[in-house]
Structure formats: structure tokens, C-alpha cells
């Protein structure tokens, strides 16, 4: 039995979003965020708490100890994670929760490396108990997913632009134990969940810009009363809402074209909104102390993961003439 087309969130979905926001506000507030900037080692206790709250087991069936929800609910939870700038291999642990023991509960942390194009990046290498490589099958290799112990992975350190996301660069793709995974599906889900985080960040930077524009006074009035500032903020909201429509719809349809378009628009919304938020903040926006740069840098990082703009645009263009 289906109701009329209702794109709006259900009461349960609203409750899930509110609950996630409350959990993150309580356990990962601004003090914790800034502490993580100084020391990006993951908080295993927080990770287990996320696990207990169903963050990773969300889409596993209830008989397997999961919550039995779908990709739309996961997208809402990841939107909140993006708002809060929650660090860690969240996407990896969400899409691999049913594959690697202990990940669903938050006991274990798993990394996921996209082997489709170089550089092969690995987020939070020091925190991961295992690494799964999704091999794109380029350079004559057969595609597939492989599981490796972190000490068997050869990699070079890399100074990550995002202070909250330590990175390593794999110098070779390890081919450990093969895993029977649907790699295209894995990529699609990873792209969608990454887009959902971008959406959360894009929406958060609108709030930050508006908050600052209402408080900060120059020429005797709040700077937000100037149309030049208003219009920047309005366009930020437009970007976020366009991305929201695309991300939510793609979470429902799971079609590759919808997910590709959603990632493209969410990447643009997150990066450009962070840039405009920085602009609205003026000189303070350029400081380490303001949080704006954390949104911008994470948005840059996510934009490089699971499908970049040039690939997305070519894929969507090709579909126009199919």
C-alpha cells in the first residue's frame, strides 16, 4: 500500500534526523571538533557509541542485528554527520558494515580505498583495523574488492589539506583476500553517502554565514542588511536546496544517473557555499580559529572521492545521447 507521492520526510525520518543531530551535538560539540583538529586520532569510544546508536548497522536487516532502514535514512544520518564535520571513515564503515565483522557495532574500523584512479588515497590509515580496496580494474587488472591487513599495505605519508582527515597514499594496490562484493553498487552508495555529507556541510555553512551576517555590524547596521551580502546568502541557500532535492531523490531511486547528478551538485554546493561563507565572514573567515576552513577543506576532499565533476559531467552527457 503506497500513499500519494510524498517527497517530504516521514515522521520517523524527522525523528531519526533530530536524534542524530542531538547525539552529535552531545558527543561531538565544537570543543571536541577543535580538539580533533589538534589531534586527529579517532575517538574509539565515540566510534563505539555511534555503533551502538545504529550509525553503521542502519541498513542491515534486523535479524542480522541491524536497524532495517534504507539508503534514504542513511542519507539523512550522513547529512547530519556532514553538518557536524564528524571525522572518520564513516562512508567505509556504513557500506561495509555487513561485510567486515565488528564494524556494525563500532568495535572495528574499516577503511575503503577507491582503486579506480590514482592517487589511491586512504583516509585515517592509523585508525583502521582493515583496509578494503575497491579495484577499478584499470591498467589490465580485473576489478573487484580485496581485503588487507593494514600492516601489509605499502603506502607513503601525505600531509592532508584537511586537518580532520589524515591521509596516506598507496604506492601499490594490495590484492589480499578477494571479497564477493557488488563493486558498482558499493561505489554508488559511497557516492550518495558522500553527497549527503556535502549537503549537510552546505546547509551548515548557510547557517554560519547568516548567523554572522545578523550579528556583525558595520556602518552601524548588521552586514546582513546589505543586499550584496543578502544575495550571497540567498544563492548559498539555493545551492543547498537544489542539492537536497537531488540527493534525497537519488537516495530513493538509487539510479546511477541520479546519484551521479546528486554528487555533482552536492560537491558544488559544499565547496562554493564554504567559499561564500568565508567571504561573508571577512577577515575572520581566513583564520585557523574560525570553523569555515574546516568545511571548505573537507568539501574539497569529499569532492575528490567517489566520482569527480569531470567524470560525472561526461557520464551525464553520454546518457543524453544514448
Amino acid at each position: 500500500m503506497t500513499g500519494p507521492v510524498d517527497f517530504q520526510l516521514t515522521d520517523d525520518q524527522r525523528a531519526l534526523r533530530a536524534g542524530t543531530r542531538e547525539l552529535l551535538a552531545g558527543r561531538f560539540d565544537r570543543d571536541r571538533l577543535r580538539a580533533s583538529v589538534d589531534d586527529p586520532a579517532l575517538d574509539r569510544a565515540l566510534w563505539r557509541e555511534l555503533g551502538a546508536a545504529g550509525f553503521f548497522a542502519l541498513r542491515l536487516p534486523e535479524e542480522a542485528g541491524g536497524v532495517g532502514l534504507g539508503l534514504p535514512e542513511a542519507a539523512l544520518v550522513f547529512e547530519e554527520a556532514g553538518r557536524a564535520l564528524l571525522p572518520g571513515p564513516l562512508v567505509a564503515c556504513q557500506v561495509l558494515a555487513g561485510v567486515v565483522d565488528g564494524v556494525a557495532t563500532g568495535e572495528k574500523i574499516v577503511g575503503l580505498c577507491d582503486g579506480a584512479g590514482e592517487p589511491w588515497l586512504w583516509e585515517h590509515p592509523a585508525a583502521c583495523d582493515e583496509l578494503i580496496v575497491a579495484d577499478g580494474g584499470a591498467q589490465g587488472r580485473t576489478g573487484g574488492a580485496f581485503r588487507s591487513a593494514p600492516d601489509r599495505v605499502v603506502c607513503a605519508p601525505m600531509a592532508s589539506v584537511d586537518p580532520l582527515t589524515p591521509l596516506a597514499r598507496l604506492t601499490d594496490l594490495p590484492r589480499g583476500e578477494p571479497l564477493p562484493l557488488d563493486v558498482p553498487r558499493l561505489r554508488r552508495e559511497a557516492a550518495l553517502l558522500t553527497a549527503a555529507q556535502q549537503l549537510g556541510s552546505a546547509a551548515r555553512t548557510v547557517e554560519m554565514a547568516v548567523g554572522h551576517a545578523r550579528e556583525r555590524e558595520q556602518f552601524g547596521v548588521p552586514v546582513g542588511s546589505f543586499q550584496a551580502v543578502k544575495h550571497l546568502c540567498a544563492q548559498m541557500l539555493v545551492r543547498a536546496e537544489i542539492a537536497r532535492s537531488a540527493v534525497y531523490a537519488a537516495a530513493v531511486t538509487e539510479s546511477v544517473l541520479d546519484v551521479t547528478g546528486a554528487k555533482l551538485l552536492a560537491d558544488e554546493a559544499a565547496v562554493r557555499n564554504a567559499r561564500d561563507c568565508l567571504q561573508v565572514h571577512g577577515g575572520m573567515g581566513f583564520t585557523w580559529e574560525a570553523d569555515v576552513h574546516l568545511h571548505l577543506k573537507r568539501a574539497w576532499l569529499r569532492a575528490e572521492c567517489w566520482g569527480v565533476a569531470s567524470e560525472a559531467e561526461e557520464l551525464l552527457a553520454a546518457a543524453l545521447v544514448d
Binding site: S245, A246, A249, G261, A312, E313, E314, A317, A319, L320
Partner: peptide, 28 residues
């Protein structure tokens, strides 16, 4: 040009979804 058209495809798809969103909001 191809990339420009690809981006427009994502834009119009999202605008269609935004329309559905606005209509279901008005319905409520």
C-alpha cells in the same frame, strides 16, 4: 561543451525533483 550539457542535465533533473518537493510540501 559535453561537460556543460552534462551539468545542465543534472541541473534540470534536480529542478524537476525540487518541483516534486515543493508540490508535495504544498500538498501538506
Amino acid at each position: 561543451l559535453r561537460r556543460r550539457l552534462g551539468r545542465l542535465s543534472a541541473e534540470f533533473a534536480a529542478l524537476w525533483r525540487l518541483t516534486q518537493w515543493n508540490v508535495s510540501e504544498a500538498q501538506g
